[in-house]
Computed example of a mutant assay.
Amino acid sequence: MEIGLVVDAACDLPPAFLAERGVEVLPIGIRLGERQLQDVRDPERTAAFYRERLDRRTELHAQSHPLDPAAVEATLLERWATRYDHLVCMTITSARSPIYAHATRAALTVGTRAREKRRAEGLPLRWGATVINSRSMFAGQAVLAWEAVRLREAGATLGELELRLRALAERIHTYLVADDLYFVLHRAARKGDRSVNWASYALGNLLDVKPILHCHRDTTGPVAKARGFDAGVRRVFDNVLAEAGRGLEVPCVCVSYAGALDRLEQMPGFAAFRAELEAAGHTVLVSQMSKTGAVNVGVGSLCVAFAAAQHRFS
């Protein structure tokens, strides 16, 4: 059975990893003022988005919106119905986006048309799609997808892969430090995120206090505050290293940054953070945050994710 792995465009995996390991991308629509475009994790377009600062700091200027169920169905049918025998689609947390609901609906309705298309090309008629809620976002989705790739390459059966991914989604921890709380206050709130209110926004601006946000099992909220962006990032790094020392569920840590990656490379503590993880045998995947992520949490945000059975921020 040829198993296809699909992520939505909010999943922060490096473009080279997506291409080399055969991970497909479900687009997400973005409105930038009067412009409509799609986020498909294209590296050149993503780099241009940050380089040209296409997103502006105005509340109504930009908004992401997922494909509707009919558009998802058409994408599954046109791109992957004949290429794969079964799709495993991993989506951003259902608490922040209807992508999971739309993809699930499409997976239930596309089967007959997919089989007709396969019959016309002389392929076996058996075809299906599984949709898995990552219960996480951005770099957190990437951890789940990394494990899906590992399992597929190891020859896991579809049943084994589905069972493992659903269990792993319960153990993914994603941390985010936003450089500009305006985006989280105004835009992420539209996606159901209430982690920053007007009081914390005003205090943050006055004292340069940055909340450290934690996403786990579909719930996002603040777990700590730091005086300044770099201090918040260091606290996240320290917590990840401590958890890695106790043992991660999978040997992979994913990091994404909403901006040029050379800024990430220059952040205090990042080089040591990556070196320590790699020395311990962990894969560290670094990616630009998707345009979808950036329009919701703001340019300059940092996201770090891993999977652990037992974890508490300290």
Score class of each variant (00 low, 15 high):
residue 169 A to M: 04
residue 280 A to C: 02
residue 272 A to T: 03
residue 314 S to C: 11
residue 62 A to C: 13
residue 93 T to Y: 05
residue 183 F to G: 01
residue 75 T to L: 14
residue 253 V to P: 15
residue 66 P to S: 15
residue 204 G to N: 02
residue 282 H to N: 15
residue 207 L to Y: 05
residue 88 V to P: 15
residue 77 L to K: 01
residue 164 R to W: 01
residue 239 N to I: 00
residue 124 P to M: 08
residue 155 G to C: 09
residue 21 R to A: 05
residue 34 E to M: 10
residue 208 D to E: 08
residue 136 S to H: 04
residue 156 A to W: 00
residue 49 F to D: 09
residue 202 A to P: 11
residue 204 G to E: 07
residue 176 L to W: 04
residue 93 T to D: 13
residue 75 T to K: 12
residue 284 V to R: 06
residue 250 V to F: 14
residue 181 L to G: 01
residue 89 C to E: 02
residue 144 L to N: 10
residue 143 V to Y: 10
residue 54 L to S: 06
residue 278 E to Q: 14
residue 55 D to E: 10
residue 197 N to F: 03
residue 263 R to C: 12
residue 196 V to Y: 06
residue 81 A to G: 11
residue 107 A to H: 10
residue 189 A to I: 04
residue 184 V to Y: 07
residue 292 T to P: 05
residue 180 D to Q: 03
residue 43 P to G: 05
residue 223 V to S: 03
residue 244 A to R: 11
residue 5 L to T: 11
residue 268 P to Q: 09
residue 275 A to V: 09
residue 122 G to A: 08
residue 180 D to V: 02
residue 242 A to G: 13
residue 197 N to A: 10
residue 98 P to Q: 10
residue 175 Y to L: 08
residue 262 D to H: 08
residue 304 V to A: 04
residue 90 M to F: 12
residue 117 K to H: 08
residue 45 R to Q: 08
residue 234 R to S: 13
residue 50 Y to A: 08
residue 104 T to A: 15
residue 179 D to H: 01
residue 156 A to F: 05
residue 307 A to M: 06
residue 161 L to T: 02
residue 222 P to W: 00
residue 196 V to W: 06
residue 125 L to C: 02
residue 210 K to M: 03
residue 275 A to T: 12
residue 265 E to A: 14
residue 43 P to M: 11
residue 11 C to V: 00
residue 140 G to T: 03
residue 122 G to M: 07
residue 297 V to P: 00
residue 51 R to Q: 15
residue 208 D to I: 00
residue 161 L to G: 03
residue 309 A to N: 10
residue 252 C to V: 13
residue 275 A to I: 10
residue 58 T to W: 00
residue 270 F to T: 02
residue 278 E to P: 05
residue 278 E to M: 14
residue 41 R to S: 03
residue 215 C to P: 05
residue 179 D to L: 02
residue 84 Y to I: 07
residue 95 A to K: 12
residue 238 D to M: 03
residue 186 H to M: 05
residue 223 V to D: 03
residue 44 E to N: 06
